[in-house]
């Protein structure tokens, strides 16, 4: 039997799907309304799953008293109420699709000490979710 622990966090941000290598027309065709020039936004939900052993002294895989401030600092402060395309350095040259966002959130959370990040799942809306587990 394996055991894991998952915690969900929320942030609200805007983005625009646009690849400057292509023409305006090609962008409109590929990204549709997500290419709308001034951006649009979502309430994102980040579900982070950690594995490891359950520390007998705390009964926990990851102590929430440490994990919550870590996620706040590494992810929520950087993304919440921001325009991802312009205010997050990693998306200056990368299209901020939720696939790429999941990869970036994984990269940031993988440095959490004491537990192994197994998976990041991001809900962009209640209908769309994206998962990344660090494997290319």
């Amino acid at each position: 039997m394996k055991i894991s622990m998952a915690r969900r966090y929320r942030f609200a941000a805007s983005h625009r799907l646009h690849n400057p290598k292509w023409s305006a027309e090609a962008n409109r065709q590929l990204y549709g309304k997500c290419n709308s020039p001034h951006g649009h936004g979502h309430n994102y939900v980040v579900e982070a799953t950690f594995t490891g052993h359950v520390e007998p002294g705390t009964g926990m895989i990851a102590n929430l008293a440490e994990l919550d401030p870590f996620v706040e600092r590494e992810v929520l402060e950087a993304f919440d109420h921001k325009y991802l395309n312009e205010e997050v350095e990693e998306f200056q040259n990368v299209v901020p699709t939720t696939e790429n966002l999941a990869r970036e959130v994984f990269r940031r959370l993988a440095t959490f000490p004491g537990a192994r990040l197994e998976r990041v799942r991001i809900e962009e809306t209640s209908k769309n979710s994206f998962e990344y587990s660090g494997k290319e």
């Binding site: 394996k2 622990m5 998952a6 915690r7 969900r8 895989i61 809900e123």
Partner: peptide
């Protein structure tokens, strides 16, 4: 709570389990 859960999975499982948990 809606924002915190633990999973125990069989060693043989891929851990996906309940499809309803996926949006």
């Amino acid at each position: 709570s809606a924002d915190l859960f633990a999973d125990c999975t069989a060693d043989s499982s891929d851990g996906l389990g309940f499809a309803g948990g996926r949006a």
